[in-house]
């Protein structure tokens, strides 16, 4: 993503599209992995609610954890989908050469958005996947 912004700053129109597409690819891979993860949770009855069941504990906190897990990762994924939509909107614009060194606020703005969603993941990853691991 930053490389797309950089290309835009330098006015290299074709490169912008390339880097944007690369960003989209990586973003999609992330979402696909997330999809498998959700499927796995589904199969193991880890969706909070009536059918929630986890082996070896009846602690309500376990369910609360999965509530937070789904709320946080779900919102993050939602924002990524929005981001992918924005990127998909930018690629044809870039191919048509609409961005130049003087005019690339769109690329810049979407870049800021994308990295912001990034930062969220930086915090979610240790919070949801790593904390408490050392007990295991």
């Amino acid at each position: 993503m930053v490389l797309a912004v950089r290309s835009a700053q330098l006015g290299r129109a074709k490169q912008i599209a390339g880097w944007l597409a690369a960003t989209m690819t990586l973003g999609t891979v992330f979402l696909v992995i997330k999809g498998f993860e959700y499927h796995h949770k589904w199969v193991h009855h880890l969706i909070p609610g009536e059918g929630f069941h986890i082996a070896g504990t009846t602690d309500p906190a376990a369910q609360t954890f999965f509530v937070l897990y789904f709320c946080m990762t779900g919102l993050h994924a939602l924002h990524m989908i929005v981001g992918l939509g924005l990127l998909a909107f930018l690629v044809p614009k870039a191919l048509r050469g609409e961005f130049s060194a003087e005019n690339h606020n769109w690329v810049e703005g979407v870049g800021l958005y994308w990295h912001f969603v990034d930062i969220i993941w930086i915090f979610l990853f240790p919070l949801l996947y790593l904390l408490g691991r050392h007990h295991a």
């Binding site: 909070p48 609610g49 009536e50 309500p60 906190a61 369910q63 609360t64 509530v67």
Partner: peptide, 12 residues
């Protein structure tokens, strides 16, 4: 979804 965030009934 009746998940507990704020409502003590669901552990919130």
């Amino acid at each position: 979804f009746h998940i507990g965030v704020f409502d003590p009934k669901y552990g919130g």
